[in-house]
Design a protein around this nucleic acid. Structure first.
Lengths: 346, 346
DNA sequence: TTGTACGCGTTATCAA
DNA sequence: TTGATAACGCGTACAA
């Protein structure tokens, strides 16, 4: 077992000073060709690599990005991570992941753990509990300590930082417009409670689309699910609520769901009610995950381009890290959504 | 913007030495109560937290685990990460993620990047390219440098390290047995080429199950997919191959697929051929992901308990890290699979 | 051309 | 009770 070799050890072996070794390795021409070659050969032999931690301490940079997300077993978030990792790696950064599991406390603890020198900046999406409690002190503190944050998807206006979001309103309007144009008369929305920002915005898009077509939104067609009840184990609750929606609205012929799971379950219920998709009822979801693509019929959906979101957040963060002196301007980048048409619509 | 405060700064402000501050904060009773209180109050005020990097350098431990996986947009792998993160956090560790993207080079680069002091040990699953090239020098090198590795799922015997795997053979046998017992006469398997270890093992389980029931495996019923062709964009290739399987075997009444995607597509093809599931043909997959759960009909599948696998790898690694002097015994832990019965079987 | 000294932030040891 | 010093591993300004 040959342990990692350090400058010091090599210096001792070669009977020169540490700084000579250091300089020789960095090809400084202060050093004679002779010793340079000797040192480099030795270093190669022992497979020397500078210690990241020592470098971090010295440079006061870790070249590491901290990601805090609510959940990793989730197509959208993992796509975002993939995007972040892609550009981070390309620019010589590593990525360290913390999961808040939708909990305020875990979010805070995780951030504190990483903020003490482990990383250079954060990329994060806010947990539901935090959104509900509206307690954002931990974000403000890290920012005021000089550690930049880039938020994505679940963001909040109160915080002064770069943001990357999806055009939720526009995306929803595209979806609802599609339903209207293909002849739907009674379009329901299955959405979340309003404290989830993306749910609220997508609902708003739905309302605006209807109004632009001179239609009057009807509360009987709006189902706001409390998604604390929609954990893996409580899907029946969701299904029951959607059942009710169907039974109370026999004339239903279009559904817009703010995520793909809601949409898939809506299709299931539709089938139970012997409605053909898309002939009798059309369905559109939000978020382009595996479910949408491989469902039967495959689901028309609003794609958020998670990977692109991730890439953009990473670019923003790294640019900020590498141009410290820059003026303090924060931008909010909007990534366009795209309506991917599949079999669940005409 | 109040930057992070250090021992040195506090020492200067309070007009004491650095070591006094350090001791006072750690409640050393060498220090008088007076100064102790004074220092602690000051530290609290300025929200002092020791710098992780400095601690890492001093202790030669980073309290960080490096994860290298082939792909993160994948239900199984993200479940494993969740499991790792869960126990890692509980035991005071962070988790840093590198993606190999199934490429040998990226795997090597990522490992080198992390091995130079950034982490204390690795948890990883081998990329397909590495498995194919059978070049494992990077694993052996990191191990011989004294950095422990725990492998999971895609492992290889040649490497001397802890491993956590699934009872792939037994899991497959459970699945095939189920098909046999519910009356299937002609059971096909849709699997991968043999260099993917889990594919090979699952195929083996299929063969063994048949033999134990005195059935002779028939090559016409064995479809080995080259999954370099089954990237997101080439699913049609897969579908075509499965079509062929159906057309050449009109008597097909059972399918065992080594992952859920293959199974879902098989169901799709079955429907195209007007075969009812499960009446005319039964289908079982491997890996319990969202697709299985929400497909119609929902898919009977062999669950691998990804989260449990992740938890176990983390326990093994951290135990090893915290008992350095332990004897060098490597274990291979097998996590039991479970057949989750849903609508695609009788 | 090579070596010494310093600093990054901590803690531990030993001296005052 | 407090403080000075060394050490973790590295790079660099400055001295020899």
């Amino acid at each position: 077992m040959k342990k990692k070799v350090t400058l010091k050890q090599m210096a001792r072996e070669l009977d020169v000073s540490i700084s000579t070794v250091s300089k020789a390795l960095r090809n400084s021409k202060e050093i004679s060709e002779d010793t340079r070659d000797k040192v480099q050969a030795f270093a190669k032999l022992y497979n020397y690599r500078p210690n990241n931690i020592a470098l971090s301490l010295k440079n006061r940079k870790t070249k590491t990005i901290g990601i805090i997300i609510p959940e990793i077993v989730h197509h959208f978030f993992s796509k975002v991570i993939r995007g972040i990792e892609l550009v981070a790696n390309k620019r010589g950064y590593n990525v360290i992941v913390g999961l808040s599991n939708e909990s305020f406390d875990k979010e805070v603890i995780n951030m504190e753990m990483l903020a003490n020198g482990s990383i250079d900046g954060f990329i994060l999406s806010i947990s539901k509990e935090t959104l509900q409690q509206q307690d954002y002190h931990h974000f403000n503190e890290t920012i005021s300590q000089g550690m930049p944050i880039v938020m994505f998807d679940r963001v909040v206006n109160e915080i002064n930082c770069d943001k990357v979001i999806v055009d939720d309103i526009l995306g929803s309007k595209k979806a609802v417009n599609k339903l209207i144009e293909t002849g739907c008369k009674n379009i329901a929305i299955i959405t979340t409670k309003d404290y989830v920002s993306v749910g609220r915005l997508r609902t708003q898009g739905y309302l605006e689309a209807l109004e632009e077509h001179k239609r009057i939104p009807e509360s009987r067609l709006i189902l706001k699910v409390d998604d604390k009840l929609v954990s893996e184990d409580h899907l029946e609750v969701l299904e029951t609520e959607i059942e009710l929606l169907f039974e109370q609205n026999k004339d239903l012929d279009g559904i817009f769901a703010v995520n793909e799971l809601y949409a898939i379950i809506a299709m299931k219920v539709a089938r139970k009610h012997n409605k053909r998709i898309p002939e009798d009822i059309q369905v559109i979801g939000f978020t382009d995950g595996v479910l949408s693509k491989h469902a039967t019929p495959s689901l028309t959906t609003v794609s958020q381009h998670g990977q692109k979101i991730g890439e953009k957040t990473a670019v923003l963060l790294i640019d900020k890290l590498e141009n410290e002196d820059e003026e303090e301007r924060y931008q909010t980048v909007i990534i366009e959504t795209e309506l991917i048409e599949r079999e669940s619509t005409k």
